[in-house]
Every structure is written in structure tokens, then in C-alpha cells.
Design a protein around this nucleic acid. Structure first.
Length: 278
DNA sequence: CGGCCAACCTGTGCGC
DNA sequence: TGCGCACAGGTTGGCC
């Protein structure tokens, strides 16, 4: 599920239910996900008031009034579901790892089959310098991201452009799906060396990245299996994929008669049109 | 440091 | 129906 648009969708579902609320009960049902869950997790957050939630790259940050923050990452298979005003408590499902109950009686459940996700505690003042966050590049939808920054990042890399755009140090939040979609719109072959992407192409990439992400957020993200939104509703951007998962199908570019190809780069599938992307 | 691969872990879908 | 394999939206540690 979770690249930037999916995480943003999850955040927008969680924030109205959690911001301003006291977490009456926080439960961690497992000792660790990708990293250890703080042994004091339940004690620290139970009774704490959540004052603000926001997204940084693919991380969701929850600031509590006490000065502690929780950093949440959904990994590959992480999902959040909200059970509004649930009484009695919803039965715990397989792979439900963390649960919050608010003072309004809403349950928030973090489920993650593969356990590549994480939830850690950190002082609110130390978020930006935390090892998970500090090296992340600019937010693609923010003011810090522009052609100049992107060009500087691409020029010093000899890796394929596909790999470079997946690197969170260069730009935050892109994952396999949205890099494939971006490169198709930009007409750039995923195997092209990053430092061979021209200045003009780099200038085009910036608004393309913004457009792809903005459109995906507006669609509620992409749903590959199960649900994307906290309510259980499906995102629907997957119906607008130009390349991702479309190996052997027709290129959607006007007048192009080629079919979408799949190659493997750094152990991940890349989908592209051999005619449109050079 | 840059670049590449394996590893983390479970589930699903497909060919036989 | 069952088995084995390939593959899945992310990140990182270890090795050239």
C-alpha cells in the first residue's frame, strides 16, 4: 500500500479522529516490528493527549502534549483501520500489532502482516534529527523541491534514474509505483543513468512528480490488495496506472503501438514503454 | 561514499 | 488439493 499518496491518505483518515484526543489506552501486542517497540510504549502514551499529526515522507508523526512523539511507518503491508465508537472493543485480528483507544471511544488499529513497518517513540524536539528522518530529502510537494535540487542530486549519481528516484535521500516519498508512472510521463527509460538525464528533462520531472502524487492523493491512493483508507474504502488511483503492473498491455500514449515491458532493477520490477521512454 | 544485493517476513497466485 | 516458486507498495546492513 504505502508510498507518499497512500500514507497521506492514511494520515487524513487518522487525524480527524485522533488530533486533540487523549489516548485512553495504547497497546503494543508484539515486542517488535522492523525495530523494537519501546518497552514503555503503552505506559508513555496511555493518558497522553495527541496534539498534532503530520506526514514526513512515508512516516506519520504524532506529537503528544507531554513532549513525546511517535513515529509510524507502514512498511510494505502496514494498514490502519479505524473503528468508530466501537463498543465492545473490536476483536483482535491476525497481525494487529498496535491499538489505540481514544477518549471518544474510537479504536485505531495498526495491522502489518510482514512487519516491515515500525512505531517508535522520540522526543518531539528530536524528530528532525532522528536517524530515521534526518537524511530524507525534500518533500516533493513542498517548496524545498525544485529542478535545481533534483539536478544536483541526479548529476552525482551513476545509478539508473529509477534507482535514484527511489532513494529517499534525493526526494522523499516516491516508491516503486510512482517512480514508474513518473518516468513514463517524462519519457525517460528507467535504466538510463541518472547523470545522463538532461537539464530540460529534470525541469520537466519536477512538475510531473508533483502531478502524479497530487492526482494519486486526490484518488485516495492506490489499492493493490485489501484497502487503502482507514475507513476500509478503496483508493482508486490503480485504475489510472500507465505502466505499473501492465506488462504486455498496450502503451496508453496517443498513437503508440508498443506494449509495456518489465525489467528488474535492484530487485524491483520496473515497467516502461520501450518506444516512449528513451 | 556510491552502488548493488541479500535480508527482514507473510501472504497470494500461478504452474504443475 | 497440494507443493514449490515467484513476487509484493520499503528500508537497511554488509560487502566491494
Amino acid at each position: 500500500m504505502p508510498e507518499l499518496p497512500e500514507v497521506e491518505t492514511v494520515l487524513r483518515g487518522m487525524a480527524p479522529v485522533m488530533e486533540g484526543r487523549v489516548i485512553v489506552e495504547a497497546k503494543a501486542w508484539v515486542p517488535k516490528l522492523r525495530v523494537d517497540i519501546d518497552p514503555a510504549f503503552e505506559q508513555t502514551l496511555s493518558g497522553a493527549r495527541l496534539v498534532r499529526m503530520y506526514r514526513r515522507s512515508k512516516y506519520i508523526v504524532m506529537d503528544f502534549e507531554s513532549g513525546v512523539s511517535a513515529i509510524l511507518h507502514l512498511g510494505m503491508s502496514g494498514r490502519i483501520s479505524i473503528h468508530a465508537d466501537a463498543e465492545p472493543a473490536p476483536e483482535r485480528q491476525k497481525h494487529d500489532h498496535v491499538t489505540f483507544l481514544t477518549d471518544r471511544g474510537d479504536y485505531i488499529v495498526f495491522n502489518d502482516a510482514r512487519r516491515f513497518g515500525l512505531i517508535i517513540l522520540c522526543s518531539t524536539g528530536d524528530i528532525e534529527t532522528h536517524a530515521l528522518i534526518r537524511d530524507i530529502g525534500p518533500e516533493p510537494l513542498g517548496n524545498q523541491f525544485d529542478a535545481k535540487v533534483l539536478r544536483a542530486g541526479l548529476k552525482k549519481r551513476k545509478s539508473p534514474i529509477k534507482t535514484a528516484l527511489l532513494d529517499q535521500k534525493l526526494v522523499a516519498g516516491l516508491g516503486n509505483i510512482y517512480v514508474c508512472e513518473t518516468l513514463w510521463r517524462a519519457g525517460i527509460h528507467p535504466a538510463r543513468r541518472a547523470d545522463k538525464v538532461s537539464k530540460q528533462e529534470t525541469e520537466q520531472l519536477v512538475p510531473i512528480i508533483r502531478d502524479v502524487l497530487t492526482e494519486a492523493i486526490a484518488a485516495g491512493g492506490s489499492t493493490l490488495k485489501d484497502y487503502a483508507q482507514v475507513s476500509g474504502e478503496l483508493g482508486y488511483f490503480q485504475h489510472r496506472f500507465s505502466t505499473y503492473g501492465r506488462e504486455g498491455e498496450a502503451c496508453l500514449s496517443e498513437g503508440c503501438d508498443a506494449t509495456i515491458q518489465r525489467i528488474v532493477q535492484s530487485n524491483r520490477s520496473s515497467f516502461y514503454c520501450p518506444k516512449c521512454q528513451k
